[in-house]
Design a binder for these strands. Structure first.
Lengths: 199, 199
DNA sequence: CACGTGATTTACACCGTGTCAAGTAGACAG
DNA sequence: CTGTCTACTTGACACGGTGTAAATCACGTG
């Protein structure tokens, strides 16, 4: 049964998503569907009836997380910034606040992208969306005449995008022990000094 | 049987490692031990006799790759640089040339780190080694008085380390289409402008 | 030539995914 | 009260991959 045509009780679906989310947080990326079902208080087969297979459950979880954490509202704050440079700062802040929330799921998806082309495609699509958002910020900075010499919009945008990926965030806030605020400050400083004409 | 006490014919071991390497390159991170064995012309169980389990095969592969591609020689060029800033450039060049060579294996290890604590630990150790190497370069830059204001050695080193991780490299040279030379130039420029006092 | 030892194979148990068929409990209509 | 539709359960099973145990082979040595 496909997930595009929802099946079953929405309440059960919600319980399954919450259960999967909690388990991803607790037990990391080795998410067993039997555990998800048990946590939600339904049979393992109910998972298949609701989501079809593991990949679609994970993708539903991604959408569910974005809504639960209001990613749209966060991104709106970026476009509402008064200058491009301020938008850059705010974008880094979005990463600082949003990355920890979805990190457990992000790792789960990263782990499964190799075994499942559908997961890989969804992840690729998400990264491309992300790149576009960063490019828009850099484009605005360039339009305001604040892009430092030596960069094109594309190269600067790609660097902005790459530096703020989840993996570097994970290293800096994990192994390096940076707080969310420190991450935002230091990454913003790095990018401003390198990319902005008059920082 | 553990891999610390090598087992069996070294030639067979070498054939297995080559087979695993080739398969990682061809088929990506979903490396099946049966395929490795078939490619090497031995039974699947020979893999277990030589390496114990999947994790130890992958780790042996990592060491084998470092030797085959002379990682030590590349890193020596970094310490031989005449200035810290030149060492930074050379370190970025090392990533530009070395990352594509071991990318297939890196992805395989990244994919399995979640299922296998031994792989995760080995990867963590490698990242810590990498961080130390980057810290040494930044330390040298600071000693020469070229570290820009606003950074400590630790924060600058962590950023240097994080920006040059394999995942950002993969995005920039893959989805963004940068050549190895473009990667080296642009990442060096980013880091010099942000971290160096008089770039 | 028997023999032991190291190298390797054949056979098997296990775990998680995904599928299938049959059954059940409750809501709702006639 | 009967039928039927939905949501889910139960139990079984095939498959693919890992890791293990037992049997077999190759070969140098007495």
């Amino acid at each position: 049964m496909s997930s595009s045509q929802p099946y079953g009780d929405p309440e059960t679906r919600e319980r399954l998503l919450r259960a999967a989310w909690d388990l991803a947080l607790e037990q990391g990326p080795s998410l067993r569907l039997a555990d998800v079902a048990a946590r939600a208080g339904v049979s393992r087969q109910a998972v298949y009836l609701h989501f079809g297979d593991r990949a679609r459950l994970l993708l539903a979880l991604l959408v569910w997380g974005d809504e639960a954490f209001k990613l749209g509202d966060l991104l709106a704050r970026v476009t509402e910034a008064r200058t491009g440079v301020e938008a850059l700062d705010r974008m880094v802040e979005v990463h600082a606040t949003y990355s920890p929330r979805i990190d457990a799921l992000a790792r789960t998806l990263e782990a499964h992208q190799y075994q499942d082309p559908a997961v890989a495609a969804a992840l690729r699509e998400r990264l491309d969306f992300r790149r576009t958002a960063h490019r828009a910020v850099i484009g605005r900075i360039a339009a305001e005449g604040d892009l430092a010499s030596g960069w094109t919009i594309d190269t600067a945008a790609d660097l902005f995008f790459a530096v703020t990926l989840p993996v570097p965030w994970r290293e800096l806030t994990g192994a390096s022990g940076w707080s969310a605020q420190q991450y935002a400050e230091r990454v913003s400083r790095l990018l401003r000094r390198a990319l902005i004409a008059h920082p």
